[in-house]
């Protein structure tokens, strides 16, 4: 009788130990710290990209009037020939340049009127929501395959966006007065199946007011 009792206690203890050892309690902060990216320096990578790959090549970008015309006439060709993307899907990125006149200064963007031979069109340049992969991916100069972890690649976008806030937005906000003329280069995201230019914002990477005296192609 007593032996049976001891046997039961032993079995119960064994089950309890097995149950406890199967549970692992982890501190969320510790897991987050482990997931953090310790080695890759996204800020330096983004700085190098900005200085040596992006800014020196801005003159290669497409005129926005030409793109708007193509999107109207032959959107498939516009996307096929002039957009870039890294993977599979409908989200594509364009690097564009243009000139226009400030028409409205909003909370999140500046509306610029673009004149072409036959018409005029409003486009929006972002001043608030500088997020996402538009600049990184529209440039076509950063290859995902170089990165062991996708999150490192994502951090590059975040750092590039910081450079936009730091290097471009102050000039843009300072010079933005209704009527002022503006030269800009920027990146734009469009969904191939839901092209909606009204709600699309351009992320600026270069802006110049005062009659476009200095363009990035002249900088050398």
């Amino acid at each position: 009788m007593r032996l049976k009792k001891i046997k039961k206690i032993l079995i119960a203890t064994f089950i309890l130990i097995a149950f406890i050892s199967s549970i692992s309690v982890q501190n969320l902060d510790e897991v987050k710290a482990r997931a953090a990216h310790s080695e890759f320096d996204a800020a330096s990578y983004a700085q190098e990209f900005w200085e040596n790959k992006l800014i020196p090549n801005l003159s290669e970008t497409m005129e926005i009037n030409r793109l708007l015309e193509l999107l109207r006439e032959d959107p498939e060709k516009a996307f096929a020939d002039h957009s870039k993307a890294l993977g599979i899907g409908n989200i594509r990125y364009f690097m564009i340049k243009g000139e226009g006149q400030v028409a409205h200064i909003g909370e999140n963007n500046i509306t610029v009127v673009i004149h072409s031979d036959s018409s005029e069109k409003n486009i929006k340049i972002a001043t608030e929501y500088i997020f996402g992969n538009a600049v990184r991916d529209a440039s076509g100069k950063i290859d995902l395959q170089e990165f062991e972890q996708t999150m490192d690649f994502n951090m590059v976008s975040a750092e590039i966006n910081k450079l936009v806030r730091q290097n471009v937005l102050p000039t843009l906000k300072e010079g933005a007065e209704v009527g002022n003329k503006l030269y800009f280069v920027g990146a734009m995201e469009l969904n191939r199946e839901q092209v909606n230019l009204e709600n699309t914002e351009i992320i600026p990477v270069f802006v110049e007011f005062q009659q476009y005296k200095r363009k990035p192609s002249d900088e050398g």
Binding site: G87, I88, Q145, T150
Partner: peptide
């Protein structure tokens, strides 16, 4: 083979939900 091939993820909200169905377009 390409080592990493990302597939787009698209925002769905009341303004564009009619473009989508379960797990796709």
């Amino acid at each position: 083979f390409i080592q990493k091939l990302p597939v787009d993820v698209e925002l769905v909200h009341p303004g564009n939900v009619d473009h989508y169905t379960a797990y796709g377009k």
